[in-house]
Amino acid sequence: MGGLSIWHWAIVLVVVLLLFGSGKVSNLMGDFAKGIKSFKKNMAEDDASMEATADRPAGTIAAPGTPGATTTATTQARETTHS
C-alpha cells in the first residue's frame, strides 16, 4: 500500500461529487469558512477583553469594618450579580 496518485484522488473526488452533488459540497465549504472566521473573531475579542482587564489596577484591601472600603473584585462581583 503505497501513496495515492493523482488518479486515485480524481476518482475519489468524482465519487464524492456524485454522492453529495456540487451544491452540498459548496455549501459545506462555505459553512466551514464561516466557522473559521467566527472562531478568529471570537479569539480576537477574547484577547482584547483580556488586555482590558490586565490594564485595570488591582483594588486595595481595607481593614475589616472600614465603611465604604471595597475592592475592585468586590465591585465587579456586585456588577455581575446585578446584571
Score class of each variant (00 low, 15 high):
10 A>H: 06
10 A>Y: 06
10 A>S: 06
10 A>L: 15
10 A>E: 14
10 A>W: 09
11 I>F: 09
11 I>D: 14
11 I>W: 08
11 I>K: 13
11 I>L: 15
11 I>G: 12
11 I>A: 11
12 V>M: 05
13 L>P: 01
13 L>F: 12
13 L>E: 13
14 V>T: 10
14 V>L: 15
14 V>N: 06
14 V>K: 09
14 V>A: 14
14 V>G: 03
15 V>C: 12
15 V>F: 08
16 V>L: 15
17 L>T: 10
17 L>K: 06
17 L>R: 10
18 L>G: 12
18 L>H: 04
19 L>H: 03
19 L>I: 11
19 L>F: 07
19 L>P: 00
19 L>M: 04
20 F>R: 11
20 F>W: 15
21 G>A: 05
21 G>N: 09
21 G>I: 00
21 G>R: 04
22 S>M: 07
23 G>M: 06
24 K>A: 13
24 K>D: 10
24 K>C: 02
24 K>L: 15
25 V>A: 07
25 V>R: 00
26 S>D: 09
26 S>H: 04
26 S>P: 00
26 S>I: 04
27 N>Q: 15
27 N>Y: 08
27 N>E: 15
28 L>H: 06
28 L>I: 01
28 L>E: 04
28 L>N: 04
29 M>F: 12
29 M>Q: 13
29 M>R: 13
29 M>T: 14
29 M>E: 05
29 M>W: 14
30 G>P: 00
30 G>M: 04
30 G>H: 04
30 G>C: 01
31 D>Y: 05
31 D>H: 04
31 D>Q: 08
31 D>A: 07
32 F>Q: 11
32 F>V: 01
32 F>I: 08
33 A>S: 14
33 A>D: 10
34 K>F: 01
34 K>M: 02
36 I>V: 15
36 I>S: 03
36 I>F: 03
36 I>K: 07
37 K>R: 12
37 K>H: 04
37 K>L: 09
38 S>W: 06
38 S>K: 05
38 S>F: 09
39 F>H: 07
39 F>M: 08
39 F>Q: 09
40 K>Q: 12
42 N>C: 02
42 N>F: 01
44 A>K: 15
44 A>F: 04
45 E>M: 09
45 E>H: 02
45 E>F: 02
45 E>P: 00
46 D>I: 06
46 D>M: 12
46 D>C: 03
47 D>S: 07
47 D>R: 13
47 D>T: 13
47 D>W: 02
47 D>H: 07
47 D>F: 05
47 D>C: 02
48 A>L: 06
48 A>M: 09
48 A>E: 15
49 S>I: 13
49 S>L: 15
50 M>E: 13
50 M>Y: 04
51 E>N: 10
51 E>R: 09
52 A>K: 14
52 A>C: 03
